[in-house]
């Protein structure tokens, strides 16, 4: 795959404690679990490597305390990693000094926080304009841009409300508008919808999808809700105790979870909307065309389930050129839809 890389993390460590660097060195750069406990250090992120491709939505999941927030705080340098390298748009992020980091945050990164992180003493307009204000954009221009963002997230008319006068969902819309005001290259969202009620959460997810269709950003999104993840993700990474256990497309994760921990996450996934026909069909190498009713190799199985189940014989599967590449039987699709075991 010759994908353009936005962010590359290599063997990133983030250890909290008295003197983390010395601690890592003492243990040859890879302390054991016991060493952490004995010496009272916390390995929030342990030896994590992954890439973020330009234009993709990468979702990071894991139980609370598994290091999700810490890894994106390393990428944004809100926390300095203890060891490892991070490349951001081709340059070494960890070599950047404070001033360069401020420039990066001002122009290339945007972030949305779980508890919104709005400034209580500023109204909606000036909260959204804040990132532009600290850059020194002049008043008229930043107000115009902020207004545009507020309209984009559907809060027009509330410009002079203060955060405490808004509902949680509205506050997060402000947070989203603020993070987009500077047109960032990468958009980080740290459990943006976790503090919201389920109904509002669904609404905000739809809102998010709408915005993403419009803006097409590179996104690193944290959640601990697998359903949310499958709804939005191009790829999903699962973290456990500071390690990245598996990082792949949702379909791959559902079909071949790396271990029980991942399987547990994938268990309640809506398979019908994730798994595609190609992944469960019986392959044939016939290379013939067919005139019979057929299904496409990239269709999700939920979409073709009715057709397959109603047909007494396996349904032929074709690719983009109309060539038959396999067939899908009733038994196969039933297992794929309802069995919890690997296929």
């Amino acid at each position: 795959m010759s994908q353009e890389m936005m962010i590359e993390c290599r063997n990133v460590w983030k250890v909290f404690g008295e003197d983390p660097k010395a601690f890592l060195d003492r243990h040859g750069g890879n302390p054991s679990r016991e060493a952490f406990i004995d010496e009272g250090y916390i390995g929030a992120v342990r030896d994590v490597s992954f890439d973020v491709h330009a234009g993709e939505i990468l979702i990071i999941m894991g139980l609370s305390g598994s290091g999700k927030s810490t890894i994106i705080r390393c990428i944004t340098r809100l926390n300095d990693p203890t060891a490892g390298t991070i490349i951001f748009e081709g340059s070494d992020l960890l070599a950047a000094n404070e001033a360069e980091m401020i420039e990066l945050r001002r122009h290339k990164m945007g972030m949305v926080f779980q508890n919104f992180g709005l400034l209580p003493h500023r109204d909606v307009l000036s909260n959204v304009a804040f990132p532009l204000e600290v850059q020194g954009v002049d008043t008229a221009a930043r107000m115009a841009r902020a207004k545009e963002m507020i309209d984009l997230v559907g809060l027009g008319g509330r410009e002079n409300y203060y955060p405490r006068e808004l509902s949680g969902g509205q506050q997060q819309r402000v947070g989203i508008a603020r993070s987009l005001a500077v047109e960032p290259d990468v958009w980080f969202l740290d459990e943006p919808f976790s503090a919201l009620d389920p109904l509002i959460r669904a609404e905000m997810q739809d809102e998010f999808i709408r915005l993403q269709r419009l803006l097409k950003k590179t996104i690193v999104f944290i959640t601990h809700d697998f359903e949310e993840a499958t709804k939005l993700a191009d790829r999903i990474g699962i973290m456990k105790d500071g390690r990245m256990v598996q990082l792949c497309a949702p379909e791959e994760m559902v079909l071949h979870p790396a271990d029980d921990y991942v399987a547990e996450f994938a268990r309640n996934a809506p398979r019908d909307r994730i798994v595609s026909v190609g992944a469960v069909m019986d392959k044939t190498d016939g290379r013939s065309k067919t005139s019979k009713a057929s299904i496409h190799v990239k269709d999700k199985i939920g979409k073709v389930a009715e057709q397959v189940l109603n047909s007494s014989t396996p349904v032929p599967v074709i690719d983009d050129e109309g060539v038959v590449v396999g067939k899908l039987s009733r038994e196969r699709i039933t297992t794929a839809l309802f069995s919890e075991t690997e296929i």
């Binding site: 705080r73 809100l78 401020i102 779980q114 992180g117 400034l119 804040f130 993070s179």
Partner: peptide, 18 residues
């Protein structure tokens, strides 16, 4: 000050003084 607020300030590109 809640950490979300200081962090959002830093992510907005504040210098330490700002």
């Amino acid at each position: 000050v809640p950490s979300d607020i200081t962090e959002s300030g830093r992510m907005s590109g504040c210098t330490p003084r700002q």
